[in-house]
Amino acid sequence: MTVNNPTIPAGTDPSRPLAPFGRRLLTVTANKPLGAYRILHAADPDGPAPAAGQFAMLAAAERWGAGEDERPYLPRAFSYARWVAGEAQFLLEDVGPGTHRLCELREGDGLWVLGPLGRGFTAPKDARRALLVGGGVGIAPLAGWQDELGERATVLLGFRDRAHAAGAALLGDALVASDDGSVGRHGLVTDLLRAELDRDAHAGVYACGPPAMLEAVRALCAARAIPAQLALEAGMACGFGACFGCVVPKRDGGYLRICIDGPVVDAAQLDRIGEHAGSPA
């Protein structure tokens, strides 16, 4: 139940820029398909630039809280995929009423945003090469991180099929694996990771994806003593530490709140990653 860097006063940790207090109304500037996903752009002229790996709580300004089934009601968490010159970009996968509503938004529509929230990725301290490992919609936070690391980063992505693999275009120069073999290597992204680590183990791993993938990454890195930062997900109600709903178990007992102790968590803090700590597969 502690925040990762308790010694660093709020506002001075580069992996944790602060959010303005209160949600703000942004205007959608574009909503484009990318294979099975959509990329939602919103003008965020006053928003602080997020660190890669941070997230925001989003809700549509209209028809949110009064839909057919009275869901969605609470805002939903989304990683910043990119934040470029006052425009925030989110990668969306339609998996339920909230994401469905956001996928419908059109240019000019209103979008409530609370963010940037949580703690993002921390740059590699030594000359280790960065391996960015993403699965499905979990590739989102890796885009901004790749922009920041540039040439130093190797990107490995996994998708279930061709339509989803089109999401790889969000990042540059990615090695892709697909579950059905339709694109890239037939298999899992962790197969790609294992091959990379066999080739050169002087690496730091940054991963985001479904729980089973994150658990495989965690176990692989733990076995080889390779540092890994995992961007976790969990059902959230608030996104700013208020509800204690978004927890994952810590290795030494107790729980982390993913929204303020994460979402990017040092893998060494975790034991096995269970089914409620990753993006919907």
Partner: peptide, 17 residues
């Protein structure tokens, strides 16, 4: 420590925690 996850369920215009 609190309860094991999941701890949240969004209900119709409500939250079950």
């Amino acid at each position: 420590a609190g309860n094991p996850p999941p701890r949240l369920w969004e209900a119709q215009a409500g939250l079950i925690n």
